[in-house]
Write a protein that binds this DNA or RNA. Structure first.
Length: 268
DNA sequence: TACATATGATCAT
DNA sequence: TGATCCTATGTAA
C-alpha cells in the first residue's frame, strides 16, 4: 500500500533517509533528465542532514547547497539496497549499492536561503515540529479571522502545516467538530484539542508509517496491531458506512473541491 | 486504448 | 472557481 504523503510521511522519510544517507558522499543523477542540472551540482558531495517542515523536505549538502522536495499528490521515494531507479525517476542517488529514487514530485529544486525563507514563512506550525507552540495563540490567531469552514482551514498550510485530506477528516471526527462550522467559531478549547490531537496522531503516523486513528476498543479488538486495514479510520472515505462509535451513516460532502467525510451525530 | 481517480498546491480569471 | 502540473493504477470501452 502506497504511503499517504501527508506530514507524517514526510517526517518519516526525513528520519529514515537521514539515518541511511546523512554523512555519505553521494553519486546523484536524474534518470528522467528533468533535474539534470541540479543533480550535477550535488553529484559527488556529502549530504549533511535533512529537515522536514510540514510537507516540505530540505536536504542540506556540503558546500551550503539545499535541495527542496515536495511530493505533492504523486511523489514517491523508493529506497533500498540494490533497488533500480525507474527511467522516469526525477532524481536518484547512491552510496555503493544503497540507492534512493524520487519520482513524481511537485517540487525538486535547489533553493537559496532567501527562497527557503519564503517557503518557510508561508507555513503554519507543524504538529511534528512544534514543541513550543501555544495553540490558543498560534493557531487560534490564524483561525480567528477566517469565515471559511474549519474543514477547509485545516488543509490550508499557512494555518497548520502537515495535515492533508485524511488527517483533516480524522482530526475533526476525534475532536467532535462539524467540518462545516466556520474556522472562527471554534472555542479556544476546541482549537487546543485539535492541536493536541494533531500532535498525537501525526506522531503516531510517523512511527507506524501509516495513518491509524481508531481506538482498538471501537472496533472490538484489544490491540492497535489487530485493527483490520478496513477499519483504521473513523471517517475518511467511509461514506454511507456506519460510524465505529455510534453506528450512524458517515456523511460525504464536497468542500471546496475536496471530498470530506464526517459523522453527523458524533460531530455536531 | 482511454479514462477516471487520488493523499497537493499554485496561478489566472 | 477552474485549469493546470505531477504519476501510477484500476476499470470501462
Amino acid at each position: 500500500m502506497a504511503p499517504v504523503p501527508e506530514g507524517h510521511t514526510i517526517h518519516r522519510a526525513a528520519r529514515l533517509q537521514r539515518r541511511r544517507f546523512a554523512g555519505r558522499r553521494l553519486h546523484v543523477w536524474s534518470p528522467q533528465g528533468r533535474f539534470a542540472e541540479g543533480a550535477a551540482a550535488l553529484d559527488g558531495t556529502i549530504l549533511t542532514t535533512i529537515d522536514a517542515y510540514g510537507k516540505h523536505l530540505f536536504y542540506r549538502w556540503e558546500g551550503a547547497l539545499t535541495l527542496h522536495v515536495h511530493l505533492g499528490l504523486f511523489g514517491r521515494f523508493v529506497v533500498g539496497e540494490s533497488i533500480v531507479p525507474s527511467s522516469n525517476a526525477r532524481m536518484a542517488w547512491e552510496h555503493d549499492s544503497d540507492r534512493l529514487a524520487l519520482s513524481g514530485p511537485t517540487v525538486c529544486e535547489i533553493v537559496d536561503p532567501a527562497l527557503e525563507e519564503r517557503i518557510r514563512e508561508r507555513l503554519g506550525p507543524d504538529p511534528l515540529n512544534g514543541a513550543h507552540v501555544d495553540p490558543a495563540v498560534e493557531i487560534g490567531e490564524r483561525l480567528s479571522r477566517r469565515s471559511i469552514p474549519i474543514g477547509s482551514a485545516l488543509l490550508d498550510q499557512t494555518v497548520m502545516a502537515g495535515v492533508g485530506n485524511v488527517y483533516r477528516a480524522e482530526l475533526l471526527f476525534l475532536a467532535g467538530i462539524d467540518p462545516r462550522r466556520t474556522a472562527r467559531s471554534l472555542s479556544p478549547e476546541e482549537v487546543a484539542k485539535l492541536w493536541d490531537l494533531s500532535v498525537e496522531m501525526l506522531d503516531r503516523g510517523e512511527k507506524a508509517g501509516r495513518i491509524v486513528t481508531v481506538d482498538p476498543c471501537d472496533v472490538g479488538v484489544a490491540r492497535a496491531v489487530d485493527i483490520p486495514p478496513s477499519r483504521r479510520l473513523y471517517a475518511y472515505k467511509r461514506g454511507g458506512e456506519s460510524c465505529h462509535r455510534c453506528g450512524t451513516a458517515i456523511q460525504f460532502e464536497d468542500m471546496g473541491g475536496r471530498a470530506i467525510w464526517f459523522c453527523p451525530r458524533c460531530q455536531s
